[in-house]
């Protein structure tokens, strides 16, 4: 690009910003038409201005997003997700609805109880007999013990360090399940399982799988539920191995075929 002097830059800036008085503007525009080298200078300055604005805008966006990002992840400053929770219903009742409501096959109360038995809400145990809680995980457990599921979810969200804690994820998954938010329950259980897989650990793994299978059922994701129940059934060491009956598998198979 050719160098142009300061006065020229001022003049062009004034024109490009629309600040030039009318008379001067007319002269300026005449020159633009008849003087090609002048036109080139104006065009170059226009490009430089565009470049400056583009870079400034980029930096401004980076800065805005970075600020929000920082605030978002700052402890106790995360937005609390409050979903419009569905009416609370027991998982057993939902499963009964799925099985009976669709009229796939005749099911007796005792048949259904094979599934419903495992669908009771998870009952957390008090970790400390003294009742004193010292870690975030214990604190969350204590909140869950009170059956305060919304608070349990809020607590989880407000404490960033819990987000890769399998037990916390398991508890928050159950809280969502209790409040009828099956999608988030599934996400939480899946995350608990993946973290275990990643860390080659088994913290709350069996429990997460068991409740995830039921959450899938609640979401009518029969194939996924079937696969997970099958996995549990195939592992005698699994905590819930005995809970998966052959008849339950048959029911799922029929549901799956009908689906």
């Amino acid at each position: 690009m050719k160098n142009i002097n300061s006065e020229m830059i001022e003049l062009i800036d004034s024109y490009l910003a629309g600040r030039m008085p009318l008379k001067e503007k007319e002269t300026f525009e005449k020159k633009l038409i008849y003087d090609s080298s002048f036109y080139t200078k104006v065009e170059e300055q226009r490009q430089i201005q565009g470049l400056i604005r583009l870079k400034a805008r980029d930096e401004e966006i980076n800065s805005i997003v970075a600020d929000i990002h920082r605030n978002y992840f700052m402890k106790n400053n995360r937005v609390v997700f409050k979903k419009n929770f569905n009416k609370i219903s027991t998982i057993a009742a939902s499963i009964a609805f799925v099985l009976i409501g669709v009229g796939l096959f005749e099911t007796t109360t005792s048949d259904l109880s094979a599934i419903a038995d495992g669908l009771r809400p998870y009952e957390a145990r008090s970790l400390r007999s003294s009742g004193v809680v010292s870690t975030l995980e214990e604190e969350m457990n204590a909140i869950y013990l009170e059956n305060d599921f919304r608070e349990s979810i809020n607590f989880f969200k407000e404490n960033k360090s819990l987000s890769d804690n399998p037990k916390a994820l398991f508890l928050v998954g159950n809280s969502y399940l209790e409040l009828g938010d099956n999608t988030r329950a599934i996400d939480s259980f899946e995350k608990a399982i993946y973290i275990n897989k990643r860390n080659a650990s088994t913290a709350f793994l069996d429990k997460s799988e068991w409740y995830l299978a039921h959450a899938y059922l609640k979401e009518n994701e029969i194939e996924k539920a079937k696969k997970l129940f099958k996995k549990i059934k195939s592992d005698p060491q699994h905590f819930y191995y005995d809970k998966v009956s052959t008849y339950m598998m048959l029911q799922l198979k029929l549901l799956s075929a009908r689906d």
Partner: peptide, 21 residues
């Protein structure tokens, strides 16, 4: 700002799960 907050609320957890996976 509100829009960006909204996008964080709406999608962060899904992305986190995706990356964990």
């Amino acid at each position: 700002d509100e829009s960006i907050w909204y996008l964080y609320d709406r999608y962060y957890e899904e992305l986190e799960l995706f990356l964990f996976k």
